[in-house]
Structures are given as structure tokens and as C-alpha cells.
């Protein structure tokens, strides 16, 4: 059972079940816990090879036991996501922990990933359970519905879930080349039905300078 001890510390109450968490993110525990490193995100040989090839490397550990375990990473703000059979797309660097029963994998994101400097692939989490994602500053959760499509700066994008189509928008015009760009040269547009997590901070992207 995931709960937030504070906005920056995740507490997980366990009764013999397992959670997958970012390697080294345990800050304290109470009770009996066993920590096991999962090579390649616990996705077997195939997952390991995929991650190596796609650059979505993620070192996860499996924590199993009875008691409470607390997780935190570099004072990042944590948001909890509940999954009911749907799929969460998250950057591997923004994933803190998931329920042991959730499946993790990689998926192709296309040119969006390239524009935010995170590579062309992203991590997916699927199943029933909870996940904890991290952001630089508290994440803002924005709903996308057919009448309200959303446009996001690639540097502020953290995660999304639901039935969303992404398209890539470029605002590069001849003015950008003249050094008079609008500062928002690359944008991702989300359409459909779902939720998008954005952080109040931008990673350094190539788009940030144009």
C-alpha cells in the first residue's frame, strides 16, 4: 500500500508482497525487508537487451518483506498514480517505485523523446496497482478530453496515462533561424482522453535555446 509520508517521501506498507523501486532510493525501513537488485528492470533477458539498446536504462530493485519501507530520491516531489488495467508512460528517470505486480516495458515515443533529450523510448507500466513518479517541483496533473486538447513543452513533460495520441509540433520558422524564435520551438500535442503530468521546471532541451 503506497502513501505519501510527505510530498518528497513515499511510504510503502508491505505484508509479504513486493515492490519494485529505483535502485538505492530506500531511505529507511521498519520490520523485515529483503532488497534484491533486478538487472534490466526485472524484465528478463529480452527486457535487458531492449533497455540496453534503447537507452531507457533503469536499475530497479525488488523490495520484499513485512513492515514499512520509505523511499525518496534527491528531494524530488512524488506523485502517486493508480492504475486500473491502463497503461502509464513515464520517463525512466522519473519513476520511483511500482507495485510488484505491475508489468514494466519500453515503448517507442518517436521524435518527442529526441526533442527532450531523453532518447526515443519511454518506459511503460501496465496492470492493476500503484506507481510513484517523481518530478522537479510538484507535478501538475492536466486532463485531456476531446474538446480540450493539450500542448506541452517537452522539457516539462513527466508522464501520461490513458488513451492519448501524441503529435509533435514544431514552431521553427525562418524567424528562429534569424534568432527571433518564440522560445517554444518544439511542443507535444496530446489529443484523446487521458491525463498528463507536467513539472514546473524544464529539463535542458535543445528546444530551450531556440
Amino acid at each position: 500500500m503506497f502513501r505519501l509520508q510527505s510530498s518528497k517521501v513515499l511510504a510503502v506498507d508491505m505484508t509479504g508482497d513486493a515492490v519494485k523501486a529505483k535502485n538505492g532510493s530506500m531511505v529507511a525501513y521498519d520490520g523485515e525487508m529483503a532488497f534484491k537488485k533486478l538487472s534490466g528492470g526485472g524484465e528478463g533477458i529480452r527486457g535487458m537487451v531492449t533497455r540496453r539498446l534503447t537507452g531507457e536504462q533503469m536499475t530497479l530493485m525488488e523490495v520484499k518483506g513485512h513492515g514499512t519501507c520509505w523511499f525518496a530520491d534527491r528531494a524530488a516531489e512524488i506523485s502517486l498514480v493508480g492504475l486500473q488495467g491502463d497503461k502509464l508512460y513515464v520517463e525512466s528517470s522519473n519513476l520511483l517505485a511500482t507495485d510488484g505486480g505491475l508489468r514494466t516495458g519500453t515503448s517507442f515515443t518517436g521524435v518527442r523523446g529526441a526533442s527532450q533529450g531523453n532518447g526515443l523510448f519511454t518506459t511503460t507500466i501496465e496492470g492493476h496497482g500503484q506507481a510513484a513518479i517523481m518530478s522537479d517541483g510538484p507535478a501538475v496533473l492536466l486532463r485531456v478530453s476531446p474538446q480540450y486538447p493539450l500542448t506541452v513543452d517537452p522539457g516539462a513533460y513527466v508522464a501520461h496515462q490513458g488513451d492519448l495520441r501524441q503529435s509533435f509540433q514544431s514552431g521553427v520558422t525562418f524567424r528562429t533561424l534569424l534568432g527571433e524564435g518564440g522560445g517554444e520551438a518544439f511542443q507535444i500535442r496530446f489529443e484523446g482522453d487521458g491525463l498528463v503530468y507536467v513539472q514546473p521546471s524544464e529539463r535542458n532541451t535543445i528546444a530551450g535555446d531556440v
Binding site: L4, Q5, S7, L80, V81, G82, P138, L141, R143
Partner: peptide, 16 residues
């Protein structure tokens, strides 16, 4: 903001 201590609760979703 997140509702602390509530299991499974994420931040409230915003729309326009």
C-alpha cells in the same frame, strides 16, 4: 497539491 496520507491519491486533475 497531493493529499498526503491518502492511499493511492495523486494530485487533483485540472482541465480548462
Amino acid at each position: 497539491m497531493s493529499t498526503y496520507g491518502t492511499p493511492g491519491a495523486g494530485p487533483a486533475a485540472h482541465d480548462p
